[in-house]
Amino acid sequence: MRSVTGLLYVLQFADSALPVGAFSFSNGLESAIQQGVVRDPASLKQMVLAATEQAATLDGGALLVAHRAVLAADMQGLVAVDRAVYLRKLNEEMRTMTVRMGRKLGELGAHVLDTPLLADWVRAIKSGASPGTFPVGLALVTGALGVEARDAFAAHQYGVASMMLNAALRLMRVSYFDTQAILLEVNATAEDLYQRVRADTIDDIRAFAPLLDILAATHVRAHVRMFMN
C-alpha cells in the first residue's frame, strides 16, 4: 500500500504551484479560445479531455519508460527517451513548454535530492546531450523519491488538466464550480489511460491531435498573448 509520505510526494509534485513555470503556459488553450474552438464549459471539457489523452500516449508513456530507466540507473536510456519525447513535439511552443518546465524541475530536483542520476541528467542538459523534457524530469524526481510509476503517471495527468483549467479561469467566463466539475470528470479517465500505456516502450510513445498542434502553431503569431503557449 502507498505510504502517507509517498502520497505527500505525489501531491507535492502534482501541485500546480510547483515552481517549474506551469502557470506560464495554457497548453494551447489560449489559442483555442481566441479561435472560438473553446467557448463554454462543455467545449472546455472536450479540449481538456483531448489534451490529457494526447499527454498520456506521449508524455505519460515516456514518463513510464523513463521511470523504468531510473530504477535501472540507465542514463543512456533516459537520454534516449528524452530525445524521443522532444522529437515527437511537432510545434515550437510545445517543445518550449516541455523543456522549460523539465529543466526547471531538474534544477529543483538536484537541489532538494542528492541523487547522482539526477545530477548527471542536469549536466547532460547543460552540455546539450539531453533536451531536458518535463516527463523525464518527473520520472527522475519521483523515481528517486520511491514513488511508483503508476502514481507518477497520475501526478503528470493531473498536472496537465490543472494547468489548463487554471488558465481557463483567467481566459474565459467560467467559474471555479465549472472547472472543478470538469477536473473530476477528467480525473476519472486516468486509470483507463494508464492501462492503455503502462506497457509501452520508447517506440510506442506517440501523439495524434492535429487541431491541438495547429492551435499551438497559430498562437506563436497571436497579436495578444497572456500565456507562453
Rank of each mutant, 00 (worst) to 15 (best):
D15Q: 02
G60C: 02
A124S: 10
M47S: 15
D213G: 12
T115H: 09
R198K: 12
Q157W: 01
A222L: 03
I202K: 11
E107V: 15
L7Q: 13
V38S: 12
S162C: 12
P41Q: 09
S162D: 11
N27D: 08
V224M: 02
E93G: 06
P19D: 05
T96F: 10
A32K: 02
N27A: 09
L212A: 08
G109C: 04
A209D: 13
M1I: 14
S16K: 05
K89V: 06
A69E: 01
Y86N: 10
A32L: 09
L140W: 08
A167H: 01
F13D: 08
L215V: 00
D151A: 11
T5Y: 14
M163N: 10
D82C: 01
V10Y: 07
R196T: 11
V4K: 08
M228E: 04
L108F: 04
L8M: 13
S162Q: 14
A139P: 10
K89F: 07
A155D: 15
V220R: 15
A199M: 14
L113H: 11
F153H: 14
Y176F: 08
G61C: 07
V136L: 06
Q12R: 14
P135G: 04
R221W: 00
M164A: 08
D82I: 02
A217Y: 05
L11C: 12
A50N: 00
V65A: 05
L7I: 14
L145I: 00
E30R: 07
F23I: 11
D151K: 05
L193K: 05
G143H: 12
L145T: 03
P210D: 08
S130Q: 05
V48C: 06
A17S: 08
A124K: 03
T133P: 07
V38M: 07
A181E: 09
S26T: 11
M164D: 06
A42C: 11
L169E: 04
T52D: 00
V85G: 05
R170Q: 03
M101K: 11
A209C: 08
Y86T: 08
T201S: 14
N27E: 02
Q34G: 15
Y176N: 12
R198F: 03
A73P: 00
I214D: 10
A154D: 13
L211C: 12
Q54A: 15
K45P: 00
A181I: 03
E92N: 02
V141F: 07
N166W: 01
V122G: 04
A62F: 07
T133D: 06
M163F: 01
G137V: 06
S31F: 13
K126V: 07
S3C: 13
S26F: 04
R123F: 08
G143M: 07
S43A: 01
A66R: 03
D151M: 07
T133N: 13
A56D: 00
I202T: 12
A154R: 10
E53T: 13
E92G: 02
D213T: 15
M172Q: 10
